[in-house]
Design a protein around this nucleic acid. Structure first.
Lengths: 194, 194, 194, 194
DNA sequence: CATGAATGAGACTTCATTCAT
DNA sequence: CATGAATGAAGTCTCATTCAT
């Protein structure tokens, strides 16, 4: 993974983990660097040895999760035996990010995107587009095969919305399993096959 | 409408309109009262003649839109001739709020909910629940009639996510009409019928 | 004096006075806004109602003194009956600024010039040049009349240096009167006539 | 030269050179130890192996230049054949320090003197006074001989001001040679003889 | 000696809020 | 009701300095 700079020095990683949680809980603007430093167990000034400013911490949180999400989807798609399985992989992968260990970072990526400075947005956009392109490819194939009936670009947004919103209501520890949720989302896309 | 306080004094209304836009654009935490005062054309100190603090402005924005959204849905449902039409009304109403003149306020309601103080959340929760109850009633009937196949509570969240996310991508002035978008969302819920 | 904005609101004037003293005593970089606020008798945050940042306070200090110094020189030159008197006016005016009520501001102007941002330097340069032009005019005439023998541009810098350095050693309350100091500086320029 | 501490270890000398430049360019307060370390090519923490704190670096810069300036003046005066030549040596020596390789350090000595802690000022004052005493001796003799007409103490300050100010305008690479500048300054002191 | 992460004080600045006018 | 100066807490960030490695 040559994109990652130097060594992610333990400290940097701990800061990013804490930042993801904090930014998710309170929002980027409302989370203070002191909150963050407290969560990491250092003093607020020490954060700036690792990141030049608060905005770059947000950027790093997002960059990491974008990279991992895309890599994870790439793997999942490579293992999919047919278009139906690919569709399932798209949904499953996103659900696992939203509700798994990267949940906070993923939510931040989705809900704080507009908080990023325009420069930082464009720094990330290229990688983000690669991820979306995978969705598009699969959905277009599914449409061609008659698995889904809606326009791929439109369907991607609708599904994406349904999935990321689940961060606000789905409880991984609750009665509904992630697999059941995955099936429900899949049913939205191609109900006849479910 | 006895819930609306005193008279919505022209000034108050102008503040709330500007607040909805501003909180939507920049987020509640990042929008300053001075930004808001500038947008209204008064000085920041003057805001506090109308609202006791910034949080109450957020509250008022949300309360207004909740009331109007529920009233609007009530009317729409009253006019629906069958369950299918009711389903359509649910979706259409929410889309019209998100992309119509109350768009900013609606987005704020959805995306800044966690920013509200717990007390203010509970002050709004009753009204909010009434709105959700209308969704539930219709979806439950649709399920009973075989129009949709998923669990009503689950389906409500999925559709809600798909609809509100459209604030991030849908352009009312673009090629896709709101009616087409409505049809697409409806197709997620009950595709066989579309 | 249409250059001065709005009304110089008592507060603004008190801030500028205190700032001139403080920046002179401790240097701009070492003087803190809290020092300044303390000296004025307000809280540090309140400074920023009057000036957008610390640098603009430095700018305002300098702008004021430049304007007054030039106006004062203009008057003094208008009252000079011959070139010798004009020469004396140049020197006297600068000495009075350095050691009079505007002493601190004048010293700041001279010794903190490089601290100004380039933008602020150029905002002031036009006015500053007008002042220097008056020196040049008089010195050139003095040279033409044989009163002084050195190149005007060079002589201006040498005299300017001798005068402003006096801030570091001259004590207005000491044995040497300002008039005597003036005579000494004049003697540097045109000794034969003294 | 028993005053110089230990051995001026290569590193120490490099630090002092860089410090002189930096303190001259940005001012002592505005120059950071990190700037300095960068200029030297080490990390900021490493500076403190050589100097106990930032203030001692300023002190060392000044101490060095004071010692060298005085030694240089001593030599120049020893070679002067008469009072006039001595006068010229005073001026030439100071000009050579201000505009030669020790220019930055000399400017720092002059313009940052008040930045020194009182303790450090008194540590340097003895040496500084020796230098001034040489000026005084020469100027007093020149006065006695009728070469100059002004009070030696006063004249010293005026000339010193004229000379050190040249750091702000004189360009050694420009049209005016250092020898010409020297002549001009000498002409201020004893014009009849020039 | 050098490194570089950490410290802790303190810098400048912002901001919601108050209140005399 | 509106103004605008003032508040005071809190925010982000800087910086000299320390110290384990």
């Amino acid at each position: 993974m040559p994109e990652r700079p130097k060594k992610p020095s333990k400290a940097k990683a701990r800061i990013l983990d804490a930042a993801a949680s904090l930014f998710h809980q309170k929002g980027f603007a409302a989370a203070t660097v002191r909150d963050l430093a407290d969560a990491v167990g250092i003093l607020s000034g020490s954060l700036f040895h690792h990141f030049p400013n608060k905005g770059e911490i947000l950027f790093a949180v997002m960059e990491n999760v974008i990279i991992e999400m895309d890599a994870s989807l790439e793997n999942a798609l490579a293992a999919a035996i047919d278009t139906k399985a690919s569709l399932r992989a798209l949904i499953r992968n996103e659900l696992e990010f939203i509700h798994g260990p990267h949940g906070a970072a993923t939510a931040v990526l989705v809900y704080e995107w507009n908080t990023l400075s325009p420069e930082n947005q464009s720094r990330l956009l290229q990688r983000r587009r690669a991820y979306f392109a995978r969705w598009h490819t699969v959905l277009a194939r599914a449409k061609a095969e008659g698995l889904v009936s809606q326009d791929p670009a439109l369907l991607r947004q609708l599904l994406h919305g349904a999935i990321v919103w689940s961060v606000n209501w789905y409880d991984p520890a609750g009665a509904l399993s992630l697999t059941e949720l995955e099936a429900s989302v899949l049913a939205l896309a191609c109900p006849s096959q479910s």
